[in-house]
Design a protein around this nucleic acid. Structure first.
Lengths: 260, 260
DNA sequence: TAAACTGGTTACCATTATAGTAACTAAAGT
DNA sequence: ACTTTAGTTACTATAATGGTAACCAGTTTA
């Protein structure tokens, strides 16, 4: 093992990328001060990074207000990243098929480091819905999070459990490590994890892991979600657990080779 | 004027972004060596930058082949950049309206530094079509390029003309600076520029600049394209020049305030 | 089977870039 | 006119990067 690779990580690049990530549909414009405060960068660094993006055309600075927006190069890069990400091409048809057959809300997330990254989502029509962040570190209180945790090697699992906040969100939220371990063991047995209103009031879900080949390392998860208005968790599980596990297996097939 | 801002430009960030830009639909995977060669980076730098992206989840390294692909975080960033780029929300309806009314191929490009960046395109149905890069430095042989050049301040114009290659692509390609200046003067008079098979055989186009307010600096251009199979350039101009100029004016209205 | 090769990874350190402080400027508010 | 605020620039100790070279693990070649 080398000396933990601190030499081969470009901090400046990471900081710049974090700035780009601030801009989205809901936050289309930022002032330099806002950026510096949000990311805890000092003004000079923020200025240098932002200025770089402005010169390259990724950000655009309004000459009057000095506020920043995405520039045309960001649009080009966005297209490249979106259409260059091949995994979705493999995932989408599998999910679409189940979605259209069962009219059910499906989320596919990929696991990276300590985060779940949403890469595809289909919603049921005519039901309540919710909006979640594209990137989430909440593993202990979501079905997908628990599906991944359950199939992680013990060492990594313990490391991640330590990093979870265990905020008591709702009545059913698991706040005890022992209880979580039991819950994960159950998931391991059954092949899928549950969310019984542990994260959002009225929201229930089942999720199965997407496992890499040949390592069986969890690469992500696929979840079906519903509400207590439409299903009991038991009924929902009864009805869809097999479909879920089958879909997870097929997603594992197409994601094979991208282990690690 | 400060000392040309070399202190406030983060080279590492630029290099990293150039790596991300290599990945698209047509080039979804790269080896480290390919990246280093393509961008003229030494291996260590390329390795450090790539490793940063891998750790952050923007790239994914196949453990066997070591080849790199986009990772899930790139997908998230791609979405943010695409939907956070507001300009398109303003441009699209205006272009769509003309497109559906006249069934004509329309391209909107924004000008940055020395490049034309394509941000929106609608094509006619049932005609030959062509595929162009999203970012182009060819200004002397395209209608949009000449539309921008024609309305640039003299100083910037001369700087850019020096940087053009004037490669003799086709019979009609302008390769003489004097001839180009005459052509631009004509465009300035009429308010729009022409492309008479100067870039692609059989391709004709007319383009008008998108001008910033209040500076009248060209922010980009909108072009209508057709082929010699469908129109003569004279007939095409006769039929559409007014529609084009009207659209350009309306695009200039919605792009106002983003001057510079 | 060994030798050569290839592509990737790591060590090391001179060179260069960055973070942080502080000074400065321009615009907005009082 | 004074104060405040946000952005920009100057300066320099500290930290990151680039470049060379060594190293390693697979592959190909002899």
């Amino acid at each position: 093992m080398p000396k933990e690779n601190k030499d081969y990580f470009a901090k400046t690049l990471e900081k710049g990328i974090r700035i780009l990530n601030l801009f989205d549909e809901n936050h289309p414009n930022w002032s330099l001060t806002e950026i510096a405060e949000q990311l805890k960068f000092n003004m000079t660094s923020a200025y240098r990074l932002v200025n770089t993006f402005v010169e390259l055309g990724y950000l655009k600075k309004d000459h009057q207000s000095k506020r920043l927006r995405l520039g045309p190069m960001s649009f080009v890069l966005g297209n490249r990243l979106l259409y260059g990400f091949e995994t979705n091409k493999l995932i989408e048809p599998l999910v679409d098929e189940i979605h259209s057959r069962h009219n059910i809300s499906i989320d596919v997330t990929l696991f990276h480091s300590r985060q779940l990254v949403k890469v595809y989502r289909r919603e049921t029509s005519n039901t309540l819905t919710y909006r979640q962040d594209a990137v989430s570190e909440l593993l202990y209180c979501t079905a997908s999070g628990k599906a991944v945790l359950a199939f992680l090697p013990a060492e990594k699992l313990n490391e991640l459990i330590k990093s979870q906040s265990f905020t008591h969100r709702l009545e059913n939220t698991i706040t005890d490590v022992k209880v979580l371990h039991d819950d994960l063991e159950r998931a391991r047995q059954k092949g899928y994890a549950l969310n019984n209103e542990e994260y959002i009031n009225g929201l229930i879900a089942i999720a199965a892991p997407i496992l890499g080949r040949p390592t069986k390392y969890p690469l992500g998860a696929v979840s079906f979600t519903s509400t207590t208005l439409d299903h009991t968790l038991a009924g929902f599980t009864e009805q869809y657990a097999d479909v879920l596990c089958d879909l997870a297996k097929r997603l594992s097939d197409v994601c094979r080779g991208s282990d690690g």
